[in-house]
């Protein structure tokens, strides 16, 4: 099991999840675009950290996340 957490994007308080580019159950490959978050009118793409299956999306579209928050689990 591998956790996807919000990386350090600089001096920001929180981001909003604007879109998941993969669905739960989908097979992921390292480096593929996984989700988009937004802060301060900036979209930031978070990539898949490792190959596996997206078993759980923790922060859904529209939800907010802070540094190191759990976003999803990959198995």
């Amino acid at each position: 099991m591998s956790e996807v957490r919000l990386p350090n994007l600089g001096e920001i308080d929180e981001v909003t999840v604007v879109d998941w580019l993969k669905k739960e159950g989908e097979t992921l490959k390292t480096g593929e675009d996984l989700l988009e978050v937004e802060t301060e009118k900036t979209t930031f793409v978070i990539e898949t950290p490792q190959t596996g299956q997206l078993v759980r999306i923790v922060k859904k579209k529209g939800e907010r996340a802070r540094l190191d928050d759990l976003l999803a689990e990959i198995e």
Binding site: N8, L9, G10, E11, I12, T39, E40, T42
Partner: peptide, 9 residues
């Protein structure tokens, strides 16, 4: 540029 979205904007 310091890996910082805030600083960039």
């Amino acid at each position: 540029q310091g890996h910082d979205l805030h600083r960039y904007v």
